[in-house]
Design a protein around this nucleic acid. Structure first.
Lengths: 217, 217
DNA sequence: CGATTTTCGAACTATTCGGTTATATATTGA
DNA sequence: TCAATATATAACCGAATAGTTCGAAAATCG
């Protein structure tokens, strides 16, 4: 009774020489550093420590592996980003944390620069991947907008604050920071720019534009 | 005398069946739509209308073709972007024109979405390409900063306007718009967001932040 | 016209890659 | 100890690919 319920019975055949989760993490690194097309099955076999036939049996082909990697990566990164954004702190610090988190993952030493979601996945010619990216982008914008609306309720920004517009601007700025990480802009500079970006999107538009610049109505 | 100086003597052998410039433009489309790794020599042969041996003789290998394509593309796009930015109009309209031009090229119907410089080239594992991208990005920021400084002199923005910071923010926002074009955000929405972005970076920071948000010194 | 120059067209070669198959190995269960 | 199960190892096969070679074709020049 007890043993059956408590102990996860070991499967029958020869035990695997790899850990499924670790293997996927390794695959993430491979795709991240070499792109999608640039990765060969042999690259994955070598990095993941999974025998070639097992790779196909357990994970499927390259496309399927990439989709799994992408989803795991997005889930993990999304959770951490949400944590940074929704932690109990001022709106300004929330935004700065969020943007700086993006910079940090994009400039992680020892890993490839940039971001799997922004630098690799968009080039993958696959409907499922593209749809996933759309949803992920929409989710990120919604999350930031949510934080803005919290800030509005708390009086951190005026009640007429354009939350939706600013939210997508925050994401755009984040993407810009990530792209600059990709081309080698130093982390230090990007962290500073993340702070500047957080300040920028909190500027109020009340009486802050000169006559010359005022938008025609 | 006359004939030698005026007429560009036709070369000796069999005439080429392709136009070098048009061939490169075709190659641009191919790389743009299929990425770098995804392009085969046969793709280029088919699209450029250049016989395989001629391709190697005239243009060199895939890497060399891509570098030529990239430089021609950057020069052409850069010139048009500068034109949009430096045309005689208000600072606000200059920025909006610049950002909208980016959106338009990234959403050109009949062509691939996104941008060769931002969506394809960053993934090319080649030192020359990477250096070129760095220089191009720095040039873009410098150009926008130049326009800001013109605006400062003309009194369109305060004399303490943070031109350098805002310039890189404009480029970051442009990159964000381009990335969203890549994942299928409609042109109409992006054009609207380009306008919003132009407005955002012109907001003054004088007395526009609430106490709660004020940055600690 | 014939010699020369240059490109075109097609075929060729060596290599790489994706996916599969056959066989050996390691473990569980009876 | 032996059957059953599941994975590892290695080899294999067909397709695709990069780069080259060679003869035919198309032009100029004398």
């Amino acid at each position: 009774m007890v043993r059956n319920a408590a102990r996860p019975r070991r499967p029958r055949g020869r035990p695997r020489s790899f850990d499924e989760k670790r293997a996927l993490e390794k695959a993430t690194q491979v795709f991240w550093s070499k792109g999608y097309d640039g990765v060969t099955i042999d690259d994955l076999v070598a990095a993941m420590g999974v025998a070639r036939p097992s790779l196909y049996a357990v994970f499927g082909d390259k496309r399927k592996i990439f989709v799994r990697v992408l989803k795991a990566y997005a889930e993990s990164k999304g959770a951490l980003a949400a944590k940074a954004l929704l932690a109990p702190q001022s709106l300004r610090d929330s935004l700065a944390s969020f943007l700086k988190f993006n910079v940090e993952t994009a400039t992680e030493p020892g890993s490839a620069t940039g971001c799997l979601l922004e630098c690799v996945a968009p080039l993958v010619d696959d409907a499922e991947v593209q749809q996933f990216l759309k949803d992920a982008a929409a989710g990120a914008i919604a999350l930031v907008e949510l934080r803005f609306r919290d800030g509005m309720r708390a009086g951190e920004v005026p009640s007429n604050f354009p939350a939706a517009v600013r939210a997508s601007q925050v994401i755009d700025l984040a993407k810009g920071l990530t792209m600059r990480a990709r081309i080698g802009t130093p982390r230090k500079r990007l962290l500073k720019d993340a702070e500047e970006a957080a300040d920028l999107v909190l500027l109020s538009n009340v009486g802050s534009r000169t006559t010359l610049n005022r938008k025609k109505v």
